[in-house]
Design a protein around this nucleic acid. Sequence first.
DNA 1: CCGAAGTTGTCTAGATCTCTAGATAACTTC
DNA 2: GAAGTTATCTAGAGATCTAGACAACTTCGG
Lengths: 244, 244
Amino acid sequence: MQSRSPSGYSTWRLIAEELRRQIVDGASAPGTKLPSENDLAERFGVHRNTVRQAIAALTAEQLVVSRRGSGTFVADHTVLVHRIGTRTRLSDSLGKSGKASARLLDWALEPEPPAHIAERLQLSGRSALRLESIRSVNGVPISRVTQWYVAEFVPRLPEHFKAEGTITGALRALGIEDYVRVSTTVGGRHATAEEAAELLLPAGSVVLVVRALDALPGGTPLQLGITRFAASRVELDVEHSTSV
Amino acid sequence: MQSRSPSGYSTWRLIAEELRRQIVDGASAPGTKLPSENDLAERFGVHRNTVRQAIAALTAEQLVVSRRGSGTFVADHTVLVHRIGTRTRLSDSLGKSGKASARLLDWALEPEPPAHIAERLQLSGRSALRLESIRSVNGVPISRVTQWYVAEFVPRLPEHFKAEGTITGALRALGIEDYVRVSTTVGGRHATAEEAAELLLPAGSVVLVVRALDALPGGTPLQLGITRFAASRVELDVEHSTSV
DNA sequence: CCGAAGTTGTCTAGATCTCTAGATAACTTC
DNA sequence: GAAGTTATCTAGAGATCTAGACAACTTCGG
């Protein structure tokens, strides 16, 4: 491990991320023992206290657990899989892994939405409806979602969302049973301070940013969603058509 | 901006990432003027020198350019789009954006590949061929790739790769013209120190980790690729089937 | 069972890096 | 010319990292 470089990352943070990568990429089973603090200090070329800081961070995230005298072990952790496909709904793909829930944080009618939203939804001067929500599985927040709808297609959607508990349910209550995924892009970046707080992540954690456009049968745009998944908790699985 | 929290990220690093996010998410055109250093210092609640550190980092990445007396402006930057689909080849999706090239870093015949590789490729005791390469567009590195092949299917692949310059060309030279994408998963994490160095990224940058399995017609596994895209340079576009 | 070795937990002190503070200099814009 | 903006600098406070030590516990071999 190189000594301090002007990266803006403390040495212990870099070590914590490296250990995290080794645990997750190596698919270390819960119970796997990490090297001792002295070993890690020697490998990374730092003082043991610095390694302890890194381990403390992973402990705070419940990725590892330390036992005095024994060592540090990988804790029980799972990475959820979210399917990205033409008709996949969040409740279908992630719900199977446990109890999924969505909480509406905020909503607003937007008579003058941002230009790129208006363009993607082909609003032509019509209003958009913006919903802000957070989704959890087994009580653990996994994504922070901003959704833009063509407002006139979804009257009272927020009320229905609160009543049904899911967007799919809310849309169904409005008579919208069928819509298809038109496009999906995936990017990655550091979470904002707000996102990190809402997703219960350490500052600077990585989020996968999924931008998805859904349309009604016939191709009329219905919704543009911007979902920030906690990259440490969710992996995306792209659905490939099986027809050749 | 909160004052120092024990996140392991320096204040200037967090500010730099937030400015980056605003520039990229807001799709700021080159030439867009950022708020002045004094304004940013006030907004983030820090001293101006701290803001200067953040801007210096973005300047080093050539995302912004500062002119004394005038201000700081968004520099020319593009985010490349990589298509993820059944038959999309890197040279097809990214090559259109400019001159794409791939450089073989290393390769090895692996008689005892890791268990999860052996399983995905259904090796049953056969050897795997591992290739390590880096891909660039217009001289800018965009991804770091590890590819595992069923060795007996691709004799002398490294030589062909060097001769042809692309994997697609190398496979074609071996008579392999048709293969399909079976599965693709996308994750995100911080780049390792090595990855950051190879991709010319600041330490701790975000990479999108794409794991893809390709098969020959008939379903026999051919290749498992693990591609780390620089998230600040590449966005993934998922191909959706248009049939309903 | 006991002692040695190993491991994590805790603490103090000093060196080094980061951030704040404030100032002056050099340039641009109006 | 005045106001605004970036560039550079010095100094001090606060945070991080190194260094080393001792404490409390576990594991293993005799």
